[in-house]
Amino acid sequence: MKEMIIDENEKKKEVNEKILTDLCESYLLLNRWPSSEMDSIIVPCLLKVASKKDETEEAQKEVEIALLALGNIGFWEKLYLNEITDIIKYHQEHQNLTRLAYQSAWGILIYGFTKVDSLEEVIVNELHFVREATRELEELTKN
């Protein structure tokens, strides 16, 4: 699978983004610790999918699977953590993710707190969690 991802990524002009995304998601769901070579291909590909702003059901499912796969990474570079935090904050503000996607996003951010240098960043992220948890509890009590 590793070779397939590298081959698909190297095509550049002819790259089929859907195939590359599917391969990256599958790889991460099967391998918790990608190599740095794979990390540089997989993470940007999945962050691109996770950052989709389209609110259609199909786009939501694509974002959900990308976040689920990204949540399976056992480490986060600070660069990627900042980008994923921005993506998650956007989706929280627009409330356009499924519960599974939020669960994956929370896992990413909670695990990523160990890489955060600033207490202020930790507090801001925790406030986002509280806001989402409150919203979900209110939604559940209505049902």
Rank of each mutant, 00 (worst) to 15 (best):
I41H: 03
S26A: 09
R131K: 15
T56Y: 04
I41M: 04
K89R: 15
C45E: 15
T141F: 14
S104G: 03
F75E: 10
G107V: 01
E55D: 11
N82Y: 07
N9T: 06
E136Q: 08
E126G: 06
V124C: 06
I87V: 15
S51Q: 10
E93H: 11
D117K: 11
E17C: 08
E14V: 03
A105V: 00
Y27L: 05
K142M: 07
G112W: 01
C24H: 03
E58M: 05
E14W: 09
K89I: 04
S35V: 01
V116N: 10
T98M: 04
G107Y: 01
F113L: 14
L47R: 12
L81Q: 01
W76L: 00
I87H: 05
E83L: 12
I88M: 03
P44K: 13
I41C: 02
E8K: 13
E126I: 11
L97F: 01
L81I: 07
T134A: 09
T56Q: 11
E62C: 12
S35D: 10
E55Q: 14
K53S: 09
L79F: 13
L97K: 06
Q92F: 10
R135A: 12
I108V: 08
H91D: 01
W33M: 10
A69G: 09
S36W: 11
L68S: 11
G74D: 10
K2Y: 07
A50T: 02
W106L: 10
E120C: 05
W33Y: 13
L137R: 10
D117M: 08
E37D: 07
D117E: 11
L137Q: 04
E3Q: 14
K52P: 00
E3C: 05
C24M: 04
L97A: 08
I73Y: 06
E138H: 12
L23F: 07
E77Y: 13
N82S: 12
I6E: 05
V43A: 05
V122H: 06
E77V: 05
T85L: 08
N82E: 10
S104I: 00
S118H: 09
T98S: 14
L47I: 08
S26W: 03
L29M: 14
L70F: 04
C45Y: 05
G107W: 00
L23E: 03
L81N: 01
I88G: 02
V43I: 15
K53P: 02
L68R: 15
E10P: 01
E64S: 15
L97S: 09
A50Y: 05
F113R: 12
E136D: 02
L100D: 01
I65F: 07
R99F: 04
L140E: 09
M4S: 15
I5L: 02
L81S: 06
M1K: 15
Q103N: 09
T141D: 10
L100H: 05
L109S: 00
N82F: 07
N31V: 04
H91F: 03
I41F: 00
E14R: 11
V63H: 03
R32Y: 02
A105F: 00
L68G: 01
Y80K: 12
L20D: 01
E55L: 09
A133Y: 10
G107N: 11
V15T: 14
L79G: 07
H128Q: 13
N16T: 01
E57W: 07
L119F: 12
I73Q: 06
A66D: 00
I123S: 11
E3G: 03
Q92I: 03
F129M: 03
H94E: 12
K142P: 01
E57A: 12
